[in-house]
């Protein structure tokens, strides 16, 4: 089954985020990269863009299709992972080591609405059972 690290927060749309000192690092989960298949291109947002929670702000393209990625929280984009421009396959290699966006959170309270690893593991198990 897809990997779900303990120390991260998750959304039902298969994004992860970790926060320290008000700065969030987010990406897509291992389950998401497996479901998408070979990633061929990542369209990253502009630095400085202000996004609301659940707003789509990244597109991950695979051979099968294009997938919107939603921001787990509200905030401002401070940095994007430019390594993905040249090497989108990094997301397939390790979806957690290869983050998408760093952002300044506008309301850390929103993190409470996200899933912890246990809840997300349960969701992934259910989905994987459905697809069997």
């Amino acid at each position: 089954m897809a990997k779900v690290p303990e120390n991260l927060k998750y959304t039902k749309d298969h994004e992860w985020i970790s926060v320290s000192d008000g700065v969030g690092v987010m990406g897509i989960t291992d389950y998401a990269q497996q479901a998408m298949g070979d990633v061929v291109y990542v369209e990253l947002p502009e630095v400085g863009r202000v996004v609301a929670a659940a707003e789509d702000f990244v597109v991950v393209e695979s051979v099968k299709g294009a997938n919107d990625v939603f921001s787990p929280v509200s905030g401002t984009v401070t940095e994007v992972n430019e390594a993905l421009d040249e090497s989108p396959e990094l997301l397939n290699e390790d979806a957690y080591a290869n983050w998408l966006v760093k952002m300044e959170l506008s309301d850390e309270g929103e993190l409470d609405g996200l899933m912890d690893a246990a809840a997300y593991t349960k969701l992934v198990e259910e989905l994987e059972a459905e697809n069997e």
């Binding site: 291109y41 299709g65 294009a66």
Partner: peptide, 11 residues
């Protein structure tokens, strides 16, 4: 092809 209508539909 991710730009195109048969994949991306309204986007």
């Amino acid at each position: 092809q991710a730009r195109e209508q048969h994949i991306r539909r309204e986007k």
